[in-house]
Nucleic acid binder design. Sequence first.
DNA 1: GTGGTCTAGACCACA
DNA 2: GTGGTCTAGACCACT
Lengths: 133, 133, 133, 133
Amino acid sequence: MKLHINPKDGTPLYRQVIEQVKYLVAAGRLRPGDEMPTVRGLAQELLINPNTVARAYRELEQAGVVCTRQGSGTYISDKGTPLSQEECRRILGVRADALLSDAHHLAFSLEEVLELVRARYQALESQHKEKKP
Amino acid sequence: MKLHINPKDGTPLYRQVIEQVKYLVAAGRLRPGDEMPTVRGLAQELLINPNTVARAYRELEQAGVVCTRQGSGTYISDKGTPLSQEECRRILGVRADALLSDAHHLAFSLEEVLELVRARYQALESQHKEKKP
Amino acid sequence: MKLHINPKDGTPLYRQVIEQVKYLVAAGRLRPGDEMPTVRGLAQELLINPNTVARAYRELEQAGVVCTRQGSGTYISDKGTPLSQEECRRILGVRADALLSDAHHLAFSLEEVLELVRARYQALESQHKEKKP
Amino acid sequence: MKLHINPKDGTPLYRQVIEQVKYLVAAGRLRPGDEMPTVRGLAQELLINPNTVARAYRELEQAGVVCTRQGSGTYISDKGTPLSQEECRRILGVRADALLSDAHHLAFSLEEVLELVRARYQALESQHKEKKP
DNA sequence: GTGGTCTAGACCACA
DNA sequence: GTGGTCTAGACCACT
């Protein structure tokens, strides 16, 4: 499991960790029951502070992505989101707006955006099959 | 020149302004010599603090995207490097991935995501029309 | 607004802050729109570290109890919980179990527990009326 | 002697054990001279680590609630101070307040809370019966 | 001056 | 040795 952190990105480090873990799960490269690196281990690997990793893990737990067992470790969870349908739509709406706003400024049409989303979805899906055999 | 600011995005406001201006240049929608809105004017339009806009302009100047002529205004510099289509797709791909991986964790299907994107697009469009007339 | 922290309680400080703020809101002694003490101010008052207060405020925000405006302050929110009905039941179930377990060990019957809950509810409600006039 | 451990409660396991033993003494359900389960036996029954039970016993001994006779076992000390009915109500009142203030934020009515408490009580009861026969 | 992020380092709860 | 909490103190984003 490889994560890449870019300190100059401007987006908070703990958020970069969160998003990458979510992505890896969505791509099927991390599966329910898999063990996550230890807080200290990942911190050392990414050259960041253990507290920063701990915060990322904590928020991933609140999002239902991982679950932690005290003294044992952190694992990929198989529970769904604890959020209401309404809240889910709100969150994805924010994401969609960010995509559409950028797309607009880069002179992409709605159709081109939809096509791009479909393409990235296929890319995500194909990683599932890679892992299996 | 229309910018969309999203305070809930998590990314700093000044950075959103920078990115979007860069994108407008990249897409050829802002050309060398075009005049930028005044700091105060843009701040008022986006309902954000003038300091935030000023900071964005300052960094855009350092990046060579715009240049300020004392007492006259701010203009798009001629150093602007329009991005290739591939580069644009790469940028939007990052956004699309974020959307899709969140969608996965929130149990949304591809079809639901596409539908959501269409809906938000309509919403953004109608906002434009409201302001115009 | 007075909060009381007990460092020897064994329950984490940030959690004590969270629960007391939730209680004050439930009792109507903090109302939507009210401004919370500043992070640093409350930290000084409670003689704890600002980071601890910040964490409490962050989790209160995730729970939909307060909302923060960067550079401005933290305010009591009027949004409801972002959690699904299912998750709400799960959380309250944990609370109920804690109550019932203690009650069992203290030799309280179910009826006595229900009566106690009703009494505490009245106490909570009566605080609303105190505040109004 | 039945203890209920709730790993999701947030309060440390060893502290839950301590509290519940104190409560059993307070309610007169454990009397001076009664023998406590062995550390290993209780650990196995509660599905927790023996170290955790050992720590609870150690602190109970320091608190004067139990006393250990080498090679014989652990017994309830005669220093146990049964609590008054008012004290018991105060303790349970804290739990009830936590339940009610969470319920408020999760938009549960008093009736729904009472119903939930009844339901959890039934669930706990039926667990007892499962183990007995 | 407000909240947000990050670090370094200590101590606790638990397996 | 694992995650959890807390502190002290620095710097950033924003009003």
